[in-house]
Design a protein around this nucleic acid. Sequence first.
DNA 1: TTGTAAGCGTTATCAC
DNA 2: GTGATAACGCTTACAA
Lengths: 337, 337
Amino acid sequence: MARSPRSMGVNMGDIARLANVSKPTVSRVLNGSPLVTAETRDRVLEVAREHGYAVNRNAQRLRNIRTDTIGVVLDFGSHRQGRIADPFIFELLAGVSEALSVRNQDLLLSPPGLSNGKSYVDLIRSRASDGFIFLGQGDREPLLRELARAQVPFVVWGAVNPAEPYCAVGSDNLLGGRLAGELFRKRGARRWLFIGNTDHAEIRMRHDGLCAIARQEPAVHVERLQVEHMAYASTYAGCVAWLRDHPAPDAVFAFSDTAAMAVIAAFREAGLHAPRDYALVGYNNIPPAGDFTPAITTIEQETHLAGAILVEKLMQQIEGGRAKSTLLPTRLILRET
Amino acid sequence: MARSPRSMGVNMGDIARLANVSKPTVSRVLNGSPLVTAETRDRVLEVAREHGYAVNRNAQRLRNIRTDTIGVVLDFGSHRQGRIADPFIFELLAGVSEALSVRNQDLLLSPPGLSNGKSYVDLIRSRASDGFIFLGQGDREPLLRELARAQVPFVVWGAVNPAEPYCAVGSDNLLGGRLAGELFRKRGARRWLFIGNTDHAEIRMRHDGLCAIARQEPAVHVERLQVEHMAYASTYAGCVAWLRDHPAPDAVFAFSDTAAMAVIAAFREAGLHAPRDYALVGYNNIPPAGDFTPAITTIEQETHLAGAILVEKLMQQIEGGRAKSTLLPTRLILRET
DNA sequence: TTGTAAGCGTTATCAC
DNA sequence: GTGATAACGCTTACAA
């Protein structure tokens, strides 16, 4: 088979020659153009198959405006303090991966440590991707505002705040917080403890929801334990320290089920058991939550839709439109704690 | 700024003109060639910075032999039966992502459902990636052999079997199985139950290790409960059904900590408690394992090195070399069960 | 319905 | 040291 000197394999020209057609015809066949005769099409496809030909995606992307690649950004850092704490974010990733492949978009997993706005803008400029999906906004709100200003197409899974200049999809964290608050109120708890890093908008909104209910009960007092990292260990240590300096709460709302497990362990050290001594609500409804001892009451997020919705909204933007933020439902899963 | 008709932004030609040099010079500057004068270099860099220029990666990849992109394949399917069971695989992903970014390689996350060998070969042929990293070989051994035959550069995290024609990195699953077996023997257990899908080579080797120890004790009998999926629910249901038809085991070795949690729950239904009624060993040492009630005895894998090693071995292959399989150490984490 | 020609933005080669 | 030129493999006018 004749091939050009630097060529690595068979190219479109080779297929064209072997099928007795021109390059554009091969291109048309491969792109499903209706213009070609069925006969020509079959011949070209046969030759292509026979020679194991696959279109060079880089040449394609050089010519085309779209790269059909989406950058996906997730915070390995905050979820990986030694070991990843919560499988939640990866369910999201699985959903996004699936939704992208349905649309024939490549998923470029963003390297860790891509922190400043310029690096994302450069990825677009270098035509490495058409847009971004951020899984969890973390503490990156300034970055996201910068990208919005720079007209970079992107969507965010996380806190939904209509005041922000970008499209976010997330569950109703405010409602999540209120659901926990309502349960605590029903149980007659007075000293509520919120555990989580409120620098993260999602978590802050849960705190706000909890406080909204608390304000309706004059006797209720909400305290807050700020934990730095998402991992189990950091919550455990935080709780142990907290219990040394403070009177024990009778209700605890933790930012994740993994954190709730840490709460249970730390409180047990102090002789405190849920639900006997305190009510406990986690978040995410991860698989082991229901099977822990005690079974953890939690807030479930509707994540199975998230991937498809995120991709849909991003595509709208890439195609030049605007996409509105969306709130997904949330519900309380009542268990032992 | 003058730009070519179909152009999307500023390109190398523009920068060249603005800096009063030629395109190749700009290229040399950007690739850190020692040939250019410091003065020229600074001028070019300044102009590039000023205009927010970023090299077009597609043009680059079209010219170059390497694409500097690695496909990473993970089994969302088997880990996501409704909900992802085990965060273990994602720690691996985090490590790989980090190791790739250190080497300036893009991470193309493989779409789910890329099952036959041809689709992987085509990804190479279409120059979308230089090679693959498979996280977990799952039940894909035939596929992997096919790829090895087709000379596709790839590495696998999973079972290490010197007889296989490809490079695998993984922890010593045989040893893992033996560690569990030795513990069971020390406890004087007689009826051992292995839980896991032995279609997966990694799991099969753990079974083999367990049986190797069992054979040294004439009184010991090993049974096996095959579970289809990696998720919690499938193990739970399997155990419940198993206990109906079989006498209770006095030792259980589960394929993951999540599965061990399912065992605990299912056995409790039957009035059986670890460690009183049976010894239990899990796998992976995920964060909640130590804090479960009872705290789960488990086998820990050295995953923090995995990413770097996998990437290293893959690069060796891409650069034309051969890479040897590697076994990583494993150890028993003794807890309550 | 198909073919010709041009160009996408790089980098390698070779000349100066 | 730097520049002109020619690919890399594809798609989009435009012509036939």
